[in-house]
Structure formats: C-alpha cells, structure tokens
Computed example of a mutant assay.
Amino acid sequence: MVSWLTNPYIETVANYSVVVLSLVVFLAVFEVVTKYKNWEEISKGNLSVAMATGGKIFGIANIFRYSIEHNDTIIDMMAWGAYGFLLMLIGYFIFEFLTPRFRIDEEIQKDNRAVGLISMIISVGLSFVIGSGIG
C-alpha cells in the first residue's frame, strides 16, 4: 500500500484534485466578497472581471505550486495553500482599502480595464511573495 501512495502518478493526481477543488472553493469565497458576480460578468464580456478573476486563479494556483513543492504530505500542502489563500484574500481587502478615491469592485464591474489589469497584477505578484514564504 505504501508504494501506491508514493507513486508519482498517483501523487500528481491527488495534488491536481486537491488544487482543483480548492480553486472552486476559494473562487466561491471571492464571489461572496466581491460586489459583482464573476461568471455572470465574464459571460457578458467584461474583460476587467476576466482579468481580475484570471489573476486570482493564477495566484491561487501559484501558491499551491509552492505548497506542493515544499511539502511532503497532502495535508501540509492543503494547509499551506489555504494559509496562502487567506493572505491573498487579506491583500484583496488591503487593495480595496488603499484606494479611497474609488471602489475597486465598482470599477471592475464597470469594465475599467486599468483597474482590472492592476488587480490581476496584484494577485499574481502577491502569489509569488506568499509562495516564497511557504515552508
């Protein structure tokens, strides 16, 4: 049984499955905290929402990349991935707080592409910073 668990093919499928499920859960959390409905806006062609959501997807996946690389067990990988997501979520709220001249969510919903782009870049950038600290 132990050789089953150490098989790299099985390990890859396990990591993949956990990350896909985590992406679904974490994107649902973002859906709750944003004022717009991501997939509804994307289906209407809102490029700003697509960029912001794509940045979140990349960010979460990148955090898990570091987590998989630095942890030996699925449980540790999940814990570090969830912790990284929490830090990314905090970063989202800080970004909203640090822009008092306008509301990030409202601008992204109005398809302000400059705000969508910077939101994407912040998510991607934070994921590298967060990932570098994962143990």
Rank of each mutant, 00 (worst) to 15 (best):
A50L: 15
M51A: 14
M51S: 12
A52Q: 10
A52M: 09
T53F: 11
T53V: 15
G54Q: 04
G55Y: 05
G55W: 04
I57T: 12
I57C: 06
I57V: 13
F58I: 15
F58K: 06
G59L: 02
G59K: 05
I60M: 11
I60S: 07
A61I: 12
A61G: 05
N62Q: 15
N62K: 13
N62G: 07
N62C: 07
I63M: 05
I63N: 08
F64A: 06
R65L: 13
R65Y: 15
Y66P: 12
Y66T: 02
S67E: 09
S67T: 13
I68H: 10
I68G: 03
I68M: 13
I68P: 05
I68V: 11
E69I: 09
E69Q: 15
E69V: 10
E69A: 15
E69D: 13
E69F: 10
H70E: 12
H70F: 13
H70P: 01
N71M: 04
N71P: 03
N71A: 01
N71H: 07
N71K: 07
D72E: 13
D72S: 14
D72P: 01
T73F: 00
T73W: 01
I74A: 15
I74E: 07
I74V: 09
I74L: 13
I74F: 13
I74P: 11
I75F: 09
I75H: 05
D76S: 12
D76R: 06
D76V: 00
D76N: 14
M77V: 00
M77F: 02
M77C: 02
M77Y: 01
M77H: 00
M77S: 02
M77A: 03
M78S: 08
M78L: 10
G81W: 02
G81F: 00
A82S: 10
A82N: 08
Y83T: 07
Y83V: 08
G84C: 00
G84A: 02
F85G: 01
F85S: 00
F85P: 00
L86N: 12
L86K: 06
L86V: 13
M88R: 08
M88S: 14
M88K: 11
M88Y: 14
L89I: 03
I90M: 09
